[in-house]
Amino acid sequence: MTGECPAAGPGNPHWRGRLLSPGVGAWRHDAAPLRVTRAADGIPDGSARLSFVVPGSPGATLWQARRFSSLAAGDLALVDLAAPYDYRSRPGVLSVVQVDSDALGVTAGQAAAAVPLLCTSPLHDLVRDHVRALAAVVGSLPDVAVLDDLGAATVHLLSALLLSCAPGAR
C-alpha cells in the first residue's frame, strides 16, 4: 500500500476511518501486522501528505530520511508520504491522522526538522492523545457538517505541534 490510508472495504477489513474534510482524514488499523512502504517513485497525484501515527503495540519500526526509529506503544511519529519510507508494525492497533501538508502551513523542511523534536514539544501528549481518540471514533461519526470543523481543529493542532518544534519556539 502506498499513499493515503484506505477506508475499510472488502479488500482491507482491518482499516476503519474516513476523511473529515478535503485535506484531513483519520484511520485505525486493527489487529494484523502491517507493512507500508513508499519507494522513491513520487506521488502519482502530485499531492503531499503527512501522516501522524501512533502504534498501539511495541516493536513498530519506521525508516525515513536516513533515520531509523524503533517505536514503543504510544509513540507519536511523523511520516512524510511524499518521500520514501518503510513502516512496519506488530499486531495491535495503529492510529493514523493524515493531512495535506499545504493545510498545515509548514514547509517539508520544517516538518522534517520537527521529526526528532516531536517528543520535546509541550503539545506532544495532547496531539498523541488526539490522534488516538480521533482514529477510535471517526468511523462511527455520522456524516454531518461538524466533520469539517473537526478536520479544521485537527489541522490547527497538528500545525501548532510542528511550529512548537521550530528553533526558538520555546
Rank of each mutant, 00 (worst) to 15 (best):
H14A: 15
I43M: 13
V79Y: 00
Q110C: 08
A103K: 02
L162V: 10
R18P: 05
S101P: 06
L78P: 08
S21E: 02
V138M: 07
H130F: 12
W15S: 09
H14W: 15
V96Q: 03
G105R: 04
E4M: 14
V137H: 10
G11Y: 11
P33L: 05
H130W: 15
A7C: 03
L117I: 08
G9P: 07
L123F: 13
A60L: 00
A152I: 12
P84T: 13
D80K: 00
A72E: 13
R128N: 04
A39M: 04
S121C: 05
G23M: 07
A82K: 05
P142Y: 11
G74L: 09
G17R: 03
A26V: 09
G42C: 05
V99A: 00
S159L: 08
L20Q: 01
A152K: 14
A60V: 04
G46Q: 09
L118E: 02
V155A: 05
G23Q: 04
G9I: 06
G25A: 05
L104T: 00
S95Q: 04
A77I: 00
L126R: 12
Y87M: 09
R49C: 09
V137A: 14
L147V: 08
S164I: 05
A39Y: 06
P10D: 11
G105S: 03
V115C: 05
A7Q: 06
P142M: 10
V93C: 06
R16L: 07
E4S: 12
A31V: 15
A31M: 12
H124W: 06
M1G: 14
D41E: 08
D125Y: 08
D41N: 09
A103M: 03
P142A: 12
Y87L: 14
R67L: 14
P22H: 03
R66K: 11
A160N: 14
P116H: 04
P91M: 13
L20C: 08
V144H: 10
D143P: 08
S51G: 12
D30M: 11
G9C: 09
D125L: 11
L62Q: 04
L163I: 12
A153G: 15
A82D: 09
S101Q: 15
A160R: 11
S69C: 06
A83T: 11
A48V: 14
P167S: 10
S21G: 03
D75Y: 07
R67C: 15
S164K: 07
L157I: 10
L78T: 03
N12P: 03
S69L: 07
P6K: 04
R67S: 14
G109I: 09
A39S: 13
L161Y: 01
A108Y: 03
T107Y: 05
S164L: 01
D102K: 12
G42Q: 04
A108G: 06
L104H: 00
D129R: 14
T37Y: 09
